[in-house]
């Protein structure tokens, strides 16, 4: 008897408590909603991988891409002339390389490179160039990205290099949707990449400090090198994304870091990064194979080390 009463009392007490909780939630509902939304946004912000976004160009990306392509139509109309001039210039330089400009003195067969993976003379294709249009790009932020009008359906994949219409390096594809892709620009403070000084061949680290779009920073060039204003900076030999020896920029300022044995060089990028219209996307055909080989080697070494211990 006593037991039943006790348990009844317990249930009523519990109900009272539950009611209190509901009252509490109703009283502070706005604040709780505020906290939930804050936590959701901060969760998005801090779980978002800075250079490689796992997902995102889904539904919402489709909508933004739609508006971006509409906006691009208008922008093209206004800025096409400048872009035309640049493309024409590049075309001009390629025209001069055509075989028909040269007289073949040798009586042997002429060599032709075509788009096949392998040709009869044993040349293997390493890089494929594709053109694309820039739909949207920011320049006023610390972290700038571009959106291009090609995606995985037309052969674009992650980690491909992007070059401007005058041949200068722009950035790297970090995320691909079906018809659109996102590129991390050189003007992004989280972007770091290895480049080299053309004259001496020494490699350094290129980054952006977020100050002027005309000024990138190159570190780790040793003071034993002779560096002058106007020296050319090209893409490094060891990248899986970019063909080696492509233009990146020219040295605009040489600073000596007193604390170390390295220069701090200010680089003026060759590509006009704040006004991009047409770009080239470069695919390294062997990237997958190279990456796998690299991974296998690492695994092998790790295994050996484990055995030795």
């Amino acid at each position: 008897m006593f037991n039943i009463q006790y348990s009844l009392f317990n249930i009523r007490y519990l109900l009272f408590q539950v009611r209190n909780i509901f009252l509490f939630i109703r009283r502070f509902s706005v604040f709780i909603l505020f906290l939930i939304l804050q936590i959701v946004s901060l969760y998005f912000l801090f779980t978002y991988n800075r250079s490689h976004r796992a997902k995102g160009l889904g539904f919402a990306g489709g909508i933004t891409s739609y508006f971006n392509s509409k906006y691009n139509l208008l922008e093209n109309f206004l800025t096409m002339q400048e872009e035309n001039r640049r493309v024409h210039k590049l075309n001009d330089s390629l025209m001069n390389l055509l075989n028909t400009n040269f007289v073949i003195v040798d009586s042997g067969a002429t060599m032709a490179l075509d788009t096949l993976n392998k040709d009869t003379s044993g040349h293997m294709r390493r890089f494929v160039w594709r053109s694309a249009q820039v739909l949207y790009s920011t320049a006023s932020s610390d972290k700038n990205y571009l959106q291009l009008n090609r995606g995985s359906s037309t052969g674009i994949g992650d980690d491909m290099g992007v070059f401007s219409s005058n041949g200068g390096l722009v950035g790297k594809v970090i995320n691909t949707g079906e018809n659109f892709s996102e590129v991390i620009s050189l003007l992004n403070v989280v972007n770091k990449m290895s480049v080299q000084l053309k004259r001496t061949g020494s490699a350094g680290m290129l980054s952006w400090e977020g100050k002027s779009p005309q000024e990138l920073t190159l570190k780790n060039i040793p003071k034993t090198d002779s560096v002058k204003r106007g020296d050319t900076i090209v893409t490094g030999n060891y990248s899986l994304s970019y063909p080696p020896g492509r233009l990146v920029g020219t040295v605009s300022k040489v600073l000596r870091d007193k604390a170390s044995n390295f220069f701090i060089l200010k680089i003026k990028p060759t590509a006009n990064l704040t006004n991009l219209q047409q770009v080239f996307i470069v695919e390294n055909v062997n990237q997958q194979v190279q990456k796998e080989l690299d991974k296998q080697t690492q695994d092998m070494v790790e295994k050996k080390e484990a055995l030795n211990e």
Binding site: L33, L37, Q38, V40, Y43, F44, Y48, T64, T138, K143
Partner: peptide
């Protein structure tokens, strides 16, 4: 107001590729 603030922030975020940054600020 909170929900509208969150939607507003997220729609800016989808363009600048910073999910949650503007959303957090506009919810505040």
């Amino acid at each position: 107001v909170l929900i509208l603030g969150f939607l507003l922030g997220m729609s800016i975020d989808y363009y600048t590729m910073t999910p949650g940054l503007h959303a957090a600020a506009s919810v505040l």
